[in-house]
Design a protein around this nucleic acid. Structure first.
Length: 610
DNA sequence: GTAGGGTTAG
């Protein structure tokens, strides 16, 4: 039978993902000694890759007596498609060392793509340089990939230089460039380019919208999504929906998220794994952990992202046991955890002080799963150890780990030193923290307190000065409360609200009852050098309290009051919200800049850890 | 026979 006939058969296998037939043909070729025909073997390689049988493809590739450019391009692309871009980059050097082959245009495109998905800009620029001095330097496909790579690496200006050199721009180059600007938050340039696109198809809209979501501009992303719908662009592919679900998550507006969920269902994409994943995450971020679990439980197929989203959701809402048991179920289901999964798991342990379990998971991550711990993993582990008083162990880890702790980690450890009365270590940690020039005002309070109590006055006053400088450019605190479709934003110290009187008297009323229950305002959270009474007054006007009072006055009795705050909730407000939840018998859910707090019956889901 | 754009978890 002629070779081209076999190639035709193989193409059919790829089209229908028929694994059995592919393997049968492979065996047949072996028997007839046809594998020497590189043309045929390359096709087989590609079919394995298209059927997601990377292992088979790799084995075949390694066994090939001879390989050409096509073999290399095929295997590198296969690794990209299997989401293993680092393997693409590590395999590439043997193209020359093993087979004495230089990259062609196809191979360049694969390498550029791998660099893009890794955000490996240094290697990306090297590849770019090699491409420019290669015979393929003018290839438009590689150039489009380069535009995309620079977009993903956050360097749209580098991308623009390449973009301008493309002779015949097609949709791929346009969308890559639009995405590059949008992702960097350069909305005007993105829109300008978008207006120039000859055909505004769903891809172009998606690039624009998803880029804006990723740059944190959820509001404009929504506006554009509505505009896209108005123009009758049919959503024939669900990817734009995951961006828009993500936008609702970022805004933490539950009602909006529910509407988007409704749209997802109407369009028939609810069973799409990555859409469901985005929904799980959205509900968790909107503090409706029950809805998140509901979506999760109805999924017919769950990948590592689904499980991880659910684990992190549970952990962030204070349900550590749930998070850990989800992990056990995940393993039982044969889903391999990745580095993000372990961030969620160790974080969960840290929340409830499960020191041993946390240590075990960290060890298992490295030893059983071969994952290199990142700074984030160390941060979670140090949090766990510090909180439970294992300060020496924490310090040993700091000295041996390949990263420097960040500001919040030093701050958490410093608090732990204070709590466990380790003054000497506190000074060591404080010095590290001070040298980082922290951004968080409460850090200076902490520093100042540590230095003062240890008699290091010079540093205590330095911390004060730095704080005063910081206070000037501090972002004002605000909170928004929402119920149904209504939402209302309150700024700290705001006293011009139309319902000011009602809010004021309700807070006063609650204050009387709180003091009756033993509440003493903790004014150490107020940073200014002011009189005690003035400090109390400032606490009183913190935005989250105004929002809660408004929520109590305006929402349907018995419903959950949901609040989103831009900064972290202060310690005193945390105490107050716990008390209020008990006094009025209402659940209050606050999402602050760091954590989720479910206040109910005088307790908080965060276990007073945030 | 091989390549380029839009997606989800921290």
């Amino acid at each position: 039978m002629p070779i081209f006939h076999y190639i035709h058969q193989l193409k059919n296998c790829a089209k229908h993902h028929s694994i059995a037939s592919t393997k049968q043909l492979h065996a047949h070729f072996n028997k007839l000694g046809l594998t020497q025909f590189i043309h045929l073997t390359n096709t087989l390689l590609n079919v394995y890759a298209k059927c997601n049988l990377l292992e088979d493809a790799l084995q075949l590739f390694d066994e090939m007596p001879q390989r050409d450019h096509v073999s290399w391009a095929t295997i590198l692309t296969a690794q990209n498609q299997a989401n293993l871009p680092n393997k693409t980059l590590s395999r590439f050097p043997s193209m020359f060392s093993l087979d004495r082959l230089l990259p062609d245009d196809f191979v360049f495109a694969s390498l550029v793509k791998a660099c893009g998905s890794l955000g490996a800009i240094k290697q990306g620029m090297q590849v770019h340089g090699n491409f420019l001095v290669s015979p393929f330097f003018d290839d438009d496909v590689v150039k489009s990939s380069l535009v995309d790579m620079y977009a993903k690496c956050g360097l749209p200006d580098n991308g623009r230089l390449v973009f301008d050199s493309i002779k015949s721009r097609n949709m791929a180059s346009w969308t890559a460039m639009i995405y590059g600007y949008a992702r960097k938050g350069r909305k005007e340039e993105a829109l300008e380019l978008f207006s120039m696109v000859p055909v505004k198809d769903l891809f172009a809209w998606t690039a624009l919208i998803s880029g804006l979501v990723q740059s944190g501009n959820a509001v404009d992303a929504f506006g554009l999504f509505v505009e896209m719908r108005r123009r009758g662009i049919s959503i024939i592919d669900p990817l734009v929906l995951s961006s828009i679900v993500g936008a609702s998550a970022n805004l933490a507006m539950l009602e909006l998220g529910k509407q988007v969920h409704g749209l997802v269902i109407r369009l028939g994409y609810e069973s799409c794994v990555f859409i469901s994943n985005a929904l799980v995450d959205m509900y968790a971020k909107c503090s409706d952990i029950l809805a998140a679990k509901d979506v999760f439980s109805r999924m017919s197929r769950r990948d590592v992202v689904s499980w991880t989203s659910m684990i992190i959701g549970a952990a962030q809402h204070g349900q550590a046991e749930e998070a850990l048991s989800l992990y056990d179920k995940m393993v039982l289901n044969g889903v391999k955890p990745n580095e993000v999964t372990f961030v969620g798991l160790i974080y969960a342990c840290s929340h409830v002080g499960l020191v041993n379990r946390g240590r075990e998971l960290f060890k298992s991550m490295v030893e059983d799963h071969g994952i290199h711990p990142s700074l984030q993993h160390y941060t979670c582990l140090l949090d766990l150890l510090g909180r439970s008083g294992y300060l020496e162990e924490a310090e040993t880890i700091i000295n041996s780990m390949p990263f420097k702790p960040d500001e919040p980690t030093w701050a958490a450890l410093l608090s732990a030193c204070k709590q466990y009365g380790n003054g000497k270590m506190a000074i060591r940690f404080a010095d590290h923290l001070l040298s980082l020039k922290p951004e968080e005002p409460s850090t200076y309070i902490l520093l100042s307190n540590v230095y003062s109590s240890s008699g290091v006055w010079e540093h205590a006053s330095k911390a004060r000065h730095l704080l005063e400088a910081l206070e000037v450019r501090k972002e004002p605190g605000y909170s928004y409360v929402y119920f149904g479709k209504e939402s209302q934003t309150f700024y700290a110290g705001e006293s011009s609200h139309p319902m000011k009187e009602e809010i004021f008297s309700l807070l006063n009323e609650l204050g009387v009852e709180m003091k009756r229950r033993g509440y003493v305002p903790d004014t150490s959270w107020i940073l200014h050098n002011t009189e005690h009474q003035e400090k109390e007054r400032q606490l009183f006007w913190h935005s989250e309290r105004l929002a809660v009072a408004y929520g109590l006055l305006k929402s349907v009795p018995g419903t959950i009051i949901r609040i989103v705050k831009n900064l972290r909730v202060c310690g005193d407000c945390h105490t107050v919200l716990k008390l209020i939840s008990d006094i009025v018998k209402r659940e209050i859910v606050v999402r602050d800049a760091k954590r989720y707090h479910h206040f109910k019956d005088g307790k908080c889901s965060c276990n007073d850890f945030w």
